[in-house]
Simulated assay, not measured.
Amino acid sequence: MSNYDQNISRVCDYINQNLDDELSLDKLSQVSGFSKYHFHRIFTAHTGSSLIKFIQISRLRRASFRLMLKNKMKIIDIAYEAGFDSAEAFSRAFKREFGQTPSTFRNAPQWIEWHERSESLSIKKAEQPEVRIVDFAETKVAVLEHHGSPELMYETSQKFMNWRNESKRFPANTTLSFGLVYADPKKANPDDFRFDFCSSIKGDVPENDHGIITKTIPAGRCAVFRHSGSFKNIRHGIHYLYSTWLVQNNAECRDFPLFFHYINTIYDVDEHELLSDIYLPIK
């Protein structure tokens, strides 16, 4: 990863961590370490987007999570938070970027188109995370299986969280949240893609009409690294595990899929504050 990539990545992180602030050219060029006379062109060359466009999409992306997760938050308040002076201006910008008005998105989000548009700005991140080896303890989990396009995972996730909240079996201070990844979402046929949304549980899940079942994450050695921020860039760390770390450490994978332990979730914090541990089961 070049110094240019690192500097631009630092700027993008700064933007997403300070969306409520005035993100001026002078300030962001200082963060980048580049002259303000050249910073904008360097930023565009490395992201494929103008600085203004990147900031607006970042704010609109956060607004989309507000619309989905905070039903009691008024659209006008979400508009103000995103830096718009009126609901009309916010609606026009939101529809231009995501193909739906904010109110339509809140009621029936078109996730496939949302992913295509909001994740078009892919910023290269550091590809060598700090990896440690741990002994994972066997964990029984309640599971809702996702089958189909990875872009529709938010729908399944929301169904699972709704069931979890309604069941009142998952106290926040003792429940662990996991995701089991059965295939690379960038390479799998959408119709064949599988992902399990999981919460730790002491006993078996009672029979229900929501499709929630009981599974077990087995005990065993795992290579683990911590990912912070958006999941848009998580593939770089995972690629490092498979392409480099396994070879350098003469390690072999066990017959169980990669899985995530969510330290927090998008239901609890903003996207840039997300923390997740990525587990690769090894022999």
Results as ranks from 00 to 15, higher is better:
Met1Ser: 12
Gln6Trp: 00
Ser9Asp: 12
Val11Gly: 00
Asp13Tyr: 14
Tyr14His: 06
Asn18Phe: 07
Leu19Thr: 08
Asp20Gly: 07
Lys27Gly: 01
Gln30Asn: 09
Val31Ala: 04
Tyr37Glu: 11
His40Ser: 04
His40Asp: 10
His46Glu: 07
His46Met: 11
Leu51Asp: 07
Lys53Ile: 10
Lys53Val: 07
Lys53Cys: 11
Gln56Cys: 12
Arg61Thr: 12
Ser64Lys: 05
Lys70Asn: 06
Met73Phe: 14
Ile75Pro: 00
Ile78Arg: 01
Ala82Ser: 06
Ser86Val: 14
Phe90Cys: 02
Lys95Met: 03
Gln100Ser: 15
Gln100Thr: 06
Thr101Leu: 05
Pro102Lys: 03
Thr104Val: 15
Asn107Asp: 07
Ile112Tyr: 15
Glu113Pro: 05
Trp114Pro: 01
Ile123Arg: 00
Lys124Leu: 12
Gln128Arg: 14
Asp135Gln: 14
Phe136Thr: 12
Thr139Asn: 11
Lys140Trp: 02
Leu144Phe: 05
His146Gly: 13
His146Ile: 11
His147Lys: 13
Ser149Val: 11
Ser149Tyr: 03
Ser149Ile: 11
Tyr154Gln: 01
Gln158Ile: 04
Asn162Gly: 07
Asn162Arg: 10
Asn165Tyr: 02
Asn165Val: 05
Lys168Gly: 15
Thr174Glu: 13
Ser177Asn: 11
Leu180Asp: 05
Leu180Tyr: 09
Ala183Ile: 08
Ala183Tyr: 06
Asn189His: 09
Phe193Gly: 06
Phe195Gly: 01
Asp196Gly: 14
Ser199Trp: 05
Ile201Leu: 03
Ile201Asp: 00
Lys202Pro: 09
Gly203Ser: 09
Pro218Leu: 01
Ala223Gln: 12
Val224Met: 05
Arg226Gly: 05
Ser228His: 03
Ser228Asp: 12
Ser228Cys: 12
Ser228Ile: 03
Phe231Glu: 15
Asn233Leu: 05
His236Tyr: 09
Gly237Ala: 09
Ile238His: 04
Tyr240Val: 04
Tyr242Asp: 04
Thr244Phe: 13
Val247Thr: 10
Glu252Gly: 04
Cys253Ala: 13
Asp255Leu: 09
Leu258Asn: 02
Phe259Leu: 06
Phe260Ser: 10
Tyr262Cys: 00
Ile263Met: 00
Tyr267Ala: 07
Val269Gly: 03
Leu275Ile: 00
Tyr279Leu: 10
Lys283Trp: 02
